[in-house]
Design a binder for these strands. Structure first.
Lengths: 149, 149
DNA sequence: TATTGTTATACTCTATAACTATA
DNA sequence: TATAGTTATAGAGTATAACAATA
């Protein structure tokens, strides 16, 4: 039986709920050889883009809880990929930064993630993909603004 | 600190990983008064669009495991919203269908879901929203085809 | 031998609350 | 009194494997 999706075709969350776990399962498999906790790649990429940021800032940007970030940063430190310093101006805050080894590994993981998304890149033109990023980003900003109310 | 997302701006799964849980948390809260298992709305909508389909077909279309569907259909039957019949041509298969009460409730839930996504509709024009649906659907098809290899 | 629905179970993820140290 | 980081734990969600009925 060929299935129809009916009313769900007009619900953003339906598409997200089906595509996200599907894509996520591919990513998890592809990242398995790196032997790092889920979220490590995102964490490293955000550290790289925001050197010196705090854990709570990074957790918010990545969309997971501050408590979930602890084990990730622990592991990255153990593996010599990142460092956790203390902010001199506010000694409660850690200052996160990515070591050169971390940057190198992060870039390797980026290539792997890129490869996982290849079927999407084959289906969508560069312009369409850029459009998808833009629309998702604006949708996210709109919902995030709602969350703060 | 205003956070940058760096390389993640070029990763589809990053946007999905942040937007999906955010939107999902709003949906779960909004659906709480209905007191139905998560996935019930999707299940009812797919039953409505595919009367007589089997559980395994519905589970695949919805993106969750066949075992997860059992409790959902149990609850929908108990509440008098849906029926589980036996296929006369293949007695292993259940034939699912939505009762009028289920259709009515599903439409109510649709309105609630619609309301949850209002900030997105405010941010994106109808044309942009249609574009987003189309791009997500094509991305999903591309990844689903990959999964079967 | 394979598939559908079912059950039980294990596992992961996330959420929450409590604690410390700092502000 | 509030915030950043940490820890422990409970709850939810998901995945897996095994089983009965049927093909």
């Amino acid at each position: 039986m060929s299935m129809e999706i009916g009313l769900m075709s007009k619900r953003v969350s339906f598409r997200l709920n089906t595509l996200q776990p599907l894509l996520g399962s591919f990513v998890v498999k592809a990242f398995a050889p790196f032997d790092l906790p889920v979220g490590s790649f995102t964490t490293m990429a955000l550290m790289d883009a925001n050197p010196g940021c705090s854990q709570i800032e990074l957790a918010r940007a990545a969309g997971f809880d501050k408590s979930a970030l602890v084990a990730i940063v622990d592991k990255l430190e153990q593996r010599g990929l990142a460092t956790r310093g203390r902010s001199p101006v506010d000694r409660r805050r850690n200052t996160l930064s990515l070591k050169p080894e971390g940057k190198k590994l992060m870039k390797e993981m980026f290539e792997v993630a890129h490869e996982v998304e290849r079927p999407i890149r084959k289906e969508l033109s560069p312009g369409e993909l850029a459009q998808l990023f833009e629309l998702l980003e604006r949708a996210h900003r709109a919902m995030a603004a709602q969350a703060q109310k």
